[in-house]
């Protein structure tokens, strides 16, 4: 849930990177961490297994600048992608303000993407949200690999709603900030709308 603090003049929002195991969620955060100035980022926390797979979450707080004298801070989380961590994924989605679905473009991960997207919808529903009520973008990652599926086909299978989507190579950073900015912007626009509607 976003938190607006008039005393410290900050807007805080929570963004979750969701997707199947090894699709590149942690790599997205590592790239953002590496390319963000020290004063605009906090410590990155990775709760990992012994083999660098996310166990509970990665966490990276960054600030993207000021709006009308308010600092905008985004708390970026990744979920663990491995199938058996479903309970943890659900916990991390609690209070989410925006979601990035990171898809793995490789042909052999097509089913894993579909299952993960379904798990996202199921878990959001438990909090009374769905992919149309919440700011949501898709990132097609690993575009550099020779076994990457044709973009049109991925769009057809994973993006029936036609939400904003980006091609990415998280290891080199291609598309990483475009994805982040798009979801962050959607969150702020939505925040403004919810405030107007009242």
């Amino acid at each position: 849930m976003s938190f607006i603090n008039y005393s410290s003049r900050e807007i805080n929002c929570k963004i979750v990177y969701y997707g199947p195991g090894l699709c590149g969620k942690t790599t997205n955060l590592q790239y953002i961490y590496a390319k963000t100035l020290p004063e605009a980022k906090g410590k990155m926390i990775s709760l990992e297994t012994g083999t660098e797979r996310t166990l509970l979450f990665d966490f990276l707080p960054i600030s993207l600048g000021e709006i009308r004298g308010f600092k905008t801070r985004f708390h970026l989380f990744t979920v663990p992608g491995q199938v058996f961590y479903e309970a943890s994924r659900k916990l991390i989605l609690k209070g989410v303000d925006g979601v990035v679905f990171v898809a793995d473009s490789q042909v052999e991960r097509l089913d894993a993407n579909i299952e993960s997207l379904e798990s996202l919808q199921r878990n959001l529903a438990e909090y009374g949200e769905n992919l149309s009520t919440i700011p949501f973008v898709i990132q097609y990652n690993k575009r550099d690999l020779p076994n990457a599926v044709d973009l049109g086909y991925l769009q057809e299978v994973l993006n029936a709603r036609g939400v904003q989507s980006f091609e990415a190579v998280a290891t080199t950073g291609d598309g990483v900030f475009d994805t982040l900015k798009a979801v962050a912007k959607q969150v702020l626009v939505r925040l403004k709308q919810t405030q107007r509607a009242k």
Binding site: I4, Y6, I11, L64, G65, E66, I67, R68, F70, T72, K181, A184, K185, L188, V189, L191, K192, Q195, R196, K198
Partner: peptide
Amino acid sequence: TPLFAELSDDDIDDLF
């Protein structure tokens, strides 16, 4: 509402 009532699309665009 005070903050968001004043906030324009341009303010958000400027940030990005």
